[in-house]
Write a protein that binds this DNA or RNA. Structure first.
Lengths: 263, 263
DNA sequence: CGATTCCTTGAGCGCATTCAACACGAGTGG
DNA sequence: CCACTCGTGTTGAATGCGCTCAAGGAATCG
């Protein structure tokens, strides 16, 4: 666990390659996007505030961020989580003002891509653009699954489901080790994500641990029994669409494309 | 209320023009999209089923549809509503299989646009494509607001909020009359949308009526006091982004573009 | 070492659920 | 025509999941 912080094998690219195999040029272009105006934020700082005019597309390079909103009377709800490799809204700049906040959960590094840079790069790399579209569709699917969580799952299931989802999403970005992943979420944060009170999150989280499904130590989550956890959460990974769904569009650096049988 | 079914002043175009003013050619292109392979479904039929391969982009021309999912044990959750003029996922065909159902709430007419037709038309009409992007971003914002609903609002607020949202969305599509709009949702449906039981929806719905906020007769909702309803719902319309946010990109058929003061 | 943040526990209450029954209208078939 | 079903809306009663309020403990940090 005390491994040096490796220059983190670009999370965006690792994730996009769960959709299709990118060519060298596509990878280079993606890396280019991730190199644009990199900025760091400390935990709890806001990257973007409600009412601001969106000017750039942001890509999370490292650390966790979240979308959140307030009700007038102060109730707070987290409506999305950004993990390394996640993109904060392709094309946001079409909107005049943000309707929510984006805040740093941990300390965070983000690339901020201007509209022009974004359009130039994607125009030159249609396959990359398509992979980014896929990312957007998956994000929408994740939002829908969160609606399932809040609307239909019990407290226990919600928390278990969140663990499954984040573990798999981090895995897709190359940020897991065996059955362990970072777990920087405070219980208050989990409460805002799951729509529960902190007290109830505390008790329910304990229940999940006492069922022997997971362990948490030093901000690291370790899943003891992934199948059991997924079952308890009524978790089905299909909505993450991680199965190389754009294989037939692979860059054919080699000759593999012809072998896929798709297309 | 027994007005003839007027050829319904294309809802998609009316809605998109809340983003930017389209040129005649853009409008023609949009109409072209809406004319592609029109198909009708009866209430409760599925347009798309989970597990299917998405092949076309669907545009709702008339009637209501919904996205929904099941949990393994049968709990059902509606995760989105499609009103006239709404688009069922730009670019879905990038995904290998659907992770949810799309069902007809009322009888519905949809245009089914193939990938090629879609790409050809938008390639030729970049401003239209941009408007469709805006539509997508607004849909994502609506999903987020639904998360607010389920996570943070009380039953009363959820139902009131749903009324506000649908009234304004229908208004943007040109489907309201004064403070009235169609209201085809059964209470069981509202339960699946709001994550409540049908029994509780019934009682809460009554409470909303008894507060004098709304009336429902013959599947028509009439809002008695919009301000009060919005206040009771903690409703803020900003997330619908209906304020001509792309004005500076208007088609300059005439000379208005120069007058907007934006850009 | 004090301050702050985070986690934990207890007790009581309440919003929403479940179960069960009934009313009503539309549609169907005998 | 009536009997029947089915979908929808309505109501009552009992239970419970999750909330609020309150306080104390543990960990982290300047």
């Amino acid at each position: 666990m005390s491994a040096p912080v490796q220059p983190p094998s670009n999370a965006l690219i690792r994730k996009l390659e769960h959709y299709t195999r990118l060519s060298e040029e596509d990878r280079a272009a993606a890396l280019g996007l991730c190199g644009e105006r990199v900025q760091r934020f400390r935990a709890k700082d806001d990257l973007v505030r409600e009412g601001e005019a969106p000017r750039v597309v942001r890509i999370v390079l490292d650390g966790w961020a979240c979308r959140y909103k307030y009700l007038e009377d102060g109730r707070r709800q987290v409506v999305g989580l950004f993990l390394p490799g996640d993109i904060c809204d392709l094309n946001v700049f079409l909107l005049r003002e943000m309707d929510h906040f984006i805040g740093a959960v941990t300390s965070v590094a983000v690339a901020q891509v201007t509209r022009d840079a974004f359009e130039a790069l994607t125009l030159a790399h249609p396959r990359l653009l398509q992979a980014l579209w896929w990312e957007t569709l998956v994000n929408m699917a994740i939002q829908r699954e969160w609606l399932m969580n809040l609307g239909s799952r019990t407290a226990f299931e919600r928390i278990a489901h969140l663990m499954c989802e984040l573990y798999l999403r981090l895995g897709a970005a190359g940020r897991t080790q065996g059955l362990s992943c970072e777990w920087p979420l405070t219980q208050a944060m989990i409460a805002d994500i799951t729509g529960l009170s902190t007290v109830h999150v505390n008790r329910t989280f304990q229940a999940v641990r006492e069922e022997g499904l997971v362990e948490v130590r030093d901000r690291v989550l370790t899943i003891r029994d992934l199948d059991a956890l997924m079952q308890a959460a009524l978790f089905s990974p299909n909505y993450l669409h991680l199965g190389q769904e754009g294989r037939h569009l692979d860059a054919n650096d080699g000759a593999e494309a012809a072998l896929t049988g798709r297309g």
